[in-house]
């Protein structure tokens, strides 16, 4: 871990301003991914701005009837919130499927969104990786790719995004609220928040340098039956091979987003018009153009099977 200086910020504006003062600064909240990566010198901030004291740890109902989740709300608390459990079950389920009890107690809403890939080649600094060193090449391509992306990847990067929470937020049409170093705030739809790797896989989100997430807002509850199905090798404390977040309405319409298949939570709204026709039809459009490797081609089948089971269960519940 490289040496860094450390400060505790007291307000969001102060935090953002501090980021402006220090090139190479990073915000730290839960620290569960940042410290992990700093120990390996994959992340090398020269200055850490501790944002835990910013008070962004509350949940409030929005005037529109939605929910505003403070950036620092811990994953445990978010999943335990009665409103989340009642109205946004997919989110509670996704959070609870992630990590461990200890990690969920530390991890924050904003930090979860900013998790970096778990690609083992990204994690091994002896291996070339375009995320770590742009232009260095990608050791994962042609290597061990069972966990990697089947869609939306590029010649520069085939990593997946590891978050469960983000997949649920995507299906819920969440919006990310930020404050910039100059104090300006903006709202970024989750759909635009995470990027595909393209030829700049090191740029993972729409955040500008020094921009701080202050909250994530959810629109009014959309009702329906909520599902988050995470498939993994061991029963718990493992990253998803694939995950399926779905909200299915009484008429069979609904929404679906996938985890474990791409560099970002994967949702194709147009595919959702096929929901009443069944999983195969949805997946045909959702994963159209997928380019799996022999090691991860099973993900396509798996997604279809899981979605089929979800649709069957939703139908069964409707009677």
């Amino acid at each position: 871990m490289r040496p860094f200086t450390y400060e505790r910020a007291r307000t969001p504006a102060e935090a953002a301003a501090a980021a402006k003062r220090h090139a190479g600064a990073k915000f730290v909240a839960g620290g569960t991914n940042l410290l992990d990566l700093m120990k390996l010198e994959i992340e090398t901030p020269t200055h850490l701005i501790d944002v835990n004291g910013l008070g962004l740890d509350t949940l409030e109902t929005t005037p529109e009837g939605g929910l505003r989740i403070g950036a620092l709300v811990r994953n445990t608390d978010l999943a335990a919130d009665a409103r989340v459990r009642r109205d946004y079950g997919v989110l509670a389920r996704a959070l609870l499927a992630g990590a461990s009890g200890q990690l969920r107690n530390m991890a924050t809403t904003a930090g979860n969104l900013l998790q970096r890939t778990r690609c083992p080649y990204f994690y091994d600094t002896n291996m070339p990786c375009n995320k770590r060193v742009p232009g260095d090449g990608c050791a994962a391509i042609g290597g061990f790719t069972r966990q990697h992306a089947v869609i939306g990847a590029s010649d520069a990067c085939i990593a997946t995004h590891p978050s469960d929470m983000a997949v649920a937020l995507r299906v819920l049409d969440a919006t990310v609220e930020t404050i910039g170093p100059d104090g300006a705030t903006r709202r970024i739809p989750l759909a635009d928040f995470h990027r595909l790797p393209g030829d700049q896989p090191q740029v993972e989100t729409a955040l500008a340098a020094g921009e701080l997430i202050t909250a994530v807002t959810l629109p009014r509850p959309v009702g329906g039956a909520h599902f988050y199905r995470k498939v993994r090798d061991r029963a718990s404390f493992a990253f998803a091979l694939v995950s399926v977040a779905a909200i299915v309405q009484r008429d069979g319409s609904g929404r679906v987003a996938l985890g474990g298949v791409a560099h970002k939570p994967w949702r194709v709204e147009a595919a959702e018009s096929e929901m009443t026709k069944g999983a195969r039809a949805v997946v045909a459009r959702l994963l159209a153009g997928a380019k799996p490797t022999t090691e991860n081609a099973f993900k396509l089948k798996l997604v279809e099977r899981v979605l089929a089971a979800v649709l069957a269960e939703a139908k069964g519940a409707r009677g």
Partner: peptide, 28 residues
């Protein structure tokens, strides 16, 4: 030392965390 095993679990304010993934200076 990377939050993958839980051997470092301690309670902070009664909540369990992985003590390997937080800095001492963050625990003022």
């Amino acid at each position: 030392d990377h939050g993958q095993c839980g051997a470092c679990t301690v309670l902070v304010g009664g909540r369990r965390i992985n003590s390997c993934l937080t800095l001492a200076v963050m625990q003022q």
